[in-house]
Design a protein around this nucleic acid. Structure first.
Length: 426
RNA sequence: GGGGAGAUACCAGAGCGGUCAAAUGGGACGGACUGUAAAUCCGUUGCUUCGGCUACGUAGGUUCGAAUCCUACUCUCCCCA
């Protein structure tokens, strides 16, 4: 039977800026047969974050090109710890945390792939084939094929020789390499993809497959993303940007993308959306002509939020952004229904207070837990930073129940971007 | 093992007996401008019942008064062996 991919995966990855390195021959294989390829995900937290979206996109493109994607969650590798890019030995996760993380990540991954049809995706856990694998068996069957010299030559190991590296992390590449071998023999998987920091680990896998006599095996890596200033991609002021709506609300997620710089947005829209090339190019051109409209950032934020959180969440995020940053007034705020209000401010920090009638603004800010001390409250008030229900207030402001939205809420704000909701219970 | 240098606010780094809640730079936060940007400019950056209070590695001591002097301890760095 003949196979024809929907499109040339390598070309697609290249123009999107998702291509860093490949092993020779993969392009030809991708164009002539349906390839099963995998990407591994570490269960280091109970949610993936935007940085993990890069390898996810690799799988998505693989599938869209007509190939079979496998997402591997690292139940076994997560117990060992990948030394790549790490300066120091990691602490091991306990089993309970690990299992919890695995389950969460698995659910998240399932959202991005199609599990039906001729290119149906699969999610696997490497713990399944490692749990019965004994140590002696492993060092005889796997360790014998790879030399220490070979393993020591990897950057991930070399960089740690000075500062120290446990045997556990040293052997990580063998464990990951064996994953590839296992998938290769059990599922005919010929391709492993990942960030460029995974190159060494992936190649250990292809080497192992070659020596143990599996079928041919290939690698493709994507460049590691950094911001223009060299800092790590995927962090906002408030920390990691997670894919879990509980940890990073769709609104904050949308805002993360909207706030990207012009240069960055040009890069990111290729990587994190599935918009076709002509449309992307047209958007970039339009944006350069009139950067002030931030059409590019808007579109990027919309597409990324849609991809990760879906239509409904996107609409709420848009509505919230409009209210928060548009020229909305206290009147408009008060006219919101309670459920709209709560939807829009979903994810905004909040606390409860019993009674606010006659409470001075300084006490309000500190007692609510919004600001840490009265000195800070006074400072910010003096700096003209504090608003109540979108209206700037000074130190003389005293709260009254007439200010409450829907008789229950007070919207506190420091600066333009920091909001806090006071839920008045009495 | 011997000798030397040091430990100050988020970070770097001045201060070396009172005028030090501590220069300066960076960061962070706020304001103006703008595109919810960048750059720029301005302000703020321990707590407080606004009387004060607690802070310069830790514990003591000298002094009217200590970040500053003395003692011990802990830690860091450098040189020699």
């Amino acid at each position: 039977m003949t196979f024809k991919p929907t499109y040339n995966l390598i070309d697609e990855l290249k123009w999107r800026g998702l291509f860093h390195q490949e092993t020779p021959g993969i392009e030809n294989v991708l164009n002539t047969e349906q390839v099963t390829g995998y990407v591994g995900f570490d269960p280091t937290a109970d949610s993936l974050h935007v940085g993990n979206l890069v390898p996810i996109m690799l799988l998505v493109h693989l599938q869209r090109a007509g190939h079979k994607p496998i997402a591997l969650v690292g139940g076994a590798t997560g117990m060992v710890g990948d030394p790549s890019g790490k300066k120091a030995e990691r602490t091991l996760l306990d089993l309970e945390t690990l299992n919890h993380n695995l389950a969460c990540i698995r659910t998240q991954l399932e959202r991005f792939l199609d599990f039906d049809g001729p290119a149906a995706a699969e999610v696997v856990n490497n713990y399944d084939w490692f749990k019965e694998f004994g140590f002696l068996e492993f060092i005889r069957d796997v360790g014998k094929h790879i030399t220490i010299n070979y393993m020591m030559a990897k950057d991930s190991v070399k960089n740690r020789i000075e500062s120290g590296l446990s045997f556990t992390e040293f052997s990580y590449q063998l464990v990951q390499g064996y994953d590839f071998y296992h998938l290769n023999t059990a599922k005919g998987c010929k391709l492993q993809m990942g960030g460029s920091d995974q190159w060494g680990n992936i190649v250990t896998g292809t080497e192992l497959i070659r020596r143990k006599g599996g079928s041919e095996a290939y690698a493709i890596t994507a460049p590691l993303l950094t911001k223009a200033d060299g800092s790590k991609f995927g962090k906002s002021e408030s920390g990691n940007v997670w894919l879990d709506a509980e940890k990073t609300s769709p609104y904050k997620f949308y805002q993360f993308w909207l706030n990207t710089s012009d240069d960055e947005a040009e890069k990111l829209i290729r990587i994190f959306t599935l918009l076709p090339q002509p449309e992307v190019m047209a958007l970039i051109e339009a944006h350069r002509a009139d950067p002030g409209r931030r059409e590019l950032q808007r579109r990027l934020a919309e597409e990324a939020t849609l991809l990760v959180h879906g239509q409904e969440a996107l609409e709420t995020a848009l509505a919230a952004s409009n209210i928060l940053f548009g020229k909305s007034t206290a009147e408009q705020l008060k006219s919101l229904s309670e459920s709209d209000f709560l939807d829009i401010f979903d994810g905004v920090d909040q606390s409860e207070m019993a009674n606010i009638e006659g409470v001075n603004i300084v006490d309000l800010l500190t007692d609510s837990g919004f600001l840490a001390s009265k000195s800070e409250a006074k400072r910010e008030l003096k700096g003209n930073a504090i608003s109540v229900n979108k209206t700037k207030v000074g130190e003389e402001y005293v709260a009254s129940s007439a200010d409450l939205i829907q008789g229950k809420y007070l919207l506190l704000q420091k600066g333009k971007k920091t909001y806090y909701i006071l839920n008045v219970t009495s």
